[in-house]
Write a protein that binds this DNA or RNA. Structure first.
Length: 420
DNA sequence: TCTGGGGTCCTAGGACCC
DNA sequence: TCTGGGGTCCTAGGACCC
């Protein structure tokens, strides 16, 4: 029997902060979004206080202060590195791993790895805990959708000890789970299904295929079939190349001056272009956008789309065109809140179609320059070599007043242990 | 004062082609 | 007065995920 497991780090961002800061355990902790604006992760204790996911900090300031909740700025460098360690650990148990997100992986087994799947999963759980310090929950099922569902059950069932095996789903069990718990069934579909008398997972498995496909599209049909135990969504061990790469961020304060926005756009381009080169692609189309705050007037926002005269992955080319686009949409006098760039029409760099008139742009020197820059930054740390257009001070940049040190990726931020 | 960021897939409808 | 059939590509909008 083919089996899938979904391994998910509990409250990943918070748990990770706790690994290096034991003071935070047993206490309510939240992790904040960029610019420390919203709550993006909560510990169990913080959830119990009723702090909602995504809540703006200024709106829950009172409860944060009253309950002395610890608030950390997000520290993606560290989360990314810890995530990598967890995924490497999981690789010890099966070669078939799909890294689904920063805190989740699907594991695939051609046949059940043990007669006691729960004990096997407990072993994985213990190993991850021991090697990385992070708690995980594991759901097991015959399809990815069922493994996902099993994981939800594992998380909320006290007695499950973080593991739930759903390889043999009983009708009564599925009848006790609401459809909104299912991977791929969001708020709209939940409301729609409810209007048609479908409230539980079991009821959903009984719906007619044609009806499901008509109203929930082919995607919904796949979900229903997976809930019935028919695998429709394969394990993706090799992550597919991105079809689009976006970078956008709110400024730390309103920005009115074009030169500052030009810096921000250049910075986002540099980051997007790095990702582009990393997957060996070039971009054929570029979008750049600016926007004032959605919560204030006057409001203004616009985006420019530029079809590039030639596909490229060169940061300097892309900055040049992005600045061109910015000129089309920037209006003097608005307090801008956010800027963004979006690279699309991506294609593999090695299958470039050239034509007589664009040959001049395929300058090998540009390519070698980017390889050199990427190499230096890989060796000496990201941002060591930058484009002047990105600016030096970046005063519009992120606010992270409570960021923990990057314990695992910076020599100068290693944790210090004192023995007495 | 203060409100996140980055993706995917599907469908419908229009433009255009032969 | 009459006005085909089949296909592709693109875009906008909607749904979902973490």
């Amino acid at each position: 029997m083919k089996v899938f497991a979904l391994v998910d780090c509990n409250n990943f961002y918070v748990s990770r902060e706790r690994v290096f800061c034991p003071r935070l355990s047993q206490r309510p902790v939240v992790v904040l979004s960029n610019n420390d604006g919203c709550v993006v992760a909560r510990s169990q204790e913080a959830k119990a206080l009723g702090i909602p996911m995504g809540a703006p900090v200024f709106q829950c300031r009172e409860v944060l202060d009253r309950e002395r909740v610890e608030a950390c700025s997000s520290n993606y460098t560290l989360y990314g590195d810890m995530s990598r360690r967890v995924m490497l650990t999981l690789g010890q148990f099966t070669p078939h791993v799909e890294v689904y997100s920063i805190d989740e992986s699907f594991l695939g087994f051609r046949q059940a790895p043990s007669s006691d799947l729960t004990a096997f999963a407990q072993d994985i759980r213990g190993t991850v805990r021991q090697w990385t310090g992070l708690p995980v929950s594991i759901g097991i099922g015959r399809t990815k959708t069922l493994a996902k569902l099993a994981n939800r059950i594992a998380k909320r069932t006290e007695t499950a000890q973080g593991v739930f095996d759903l390889t043999d789903p009983h009708r009564d069990l599925l009848d006790g789970i609401e459809v909104k718990e299912v991977w791929g069934i969001g708020p709209r579909y939940t409301a729609f299904l409810k209007r048609h008398g479908i409230r539980t997972v079991h009821q959903l498995t009984q719906a007619r295929d044609a009806w499901v496909q008509k109203h929930l599209t082919i995607v919904g049909l796949r979900i229903v079939r997976e809930l019935r135990g028919v695998p429709c969504i394969p394990l993706e061990e090799i992550p597919p190349s991105k079809k689009a790469i976006a970078r956008s961020r709110a400024f730390s304060r309103p920005v009115r001056a074009l030169p500052e926005i030009r810096e921000a756009v250049a910075t986002y381009i540099a980051s997007a272009a790095r990702a582009l080169r990393k997957q060996g692609s070039v971009a054929g189309c570029l979008h750049v956008s600016v926007e004032t705050s959605r919560f204030k007037t006057p409001r203004y926002g616009d985006a420019a789309t530029l079809r590039l005269p030639f596909p490229t992955a060169s940061t300097s080319d892309l900055i040049h065109f992005a600045h061109q686009g910015l000129r089309l949409i920037f209006k003097e006098g608005y307090p801008y809140h956010r800027a963004g760039v979006f690279l699309t029409d991506l294609s593999p760099q090695d299958s470039l179609q050239t034509d007589l008139f664009t040959l001049e742009y395929y300058d090998d020197r540009k390519k070698r320059l980017m390889e050199l820059v990427d190499g230096l930054n890989a060796r000496w740390g990201r941002g060591r070599v930058r484009f002047a257009a990105e600016g030096l001070k970046q005063e519009w940049g992120m606010r992270q007043s409570r960021r923990s040190p990057r314990f695992t990726t910076r020599w100068e931020e290693l944790p210090v242990v004192r023995a007495s």
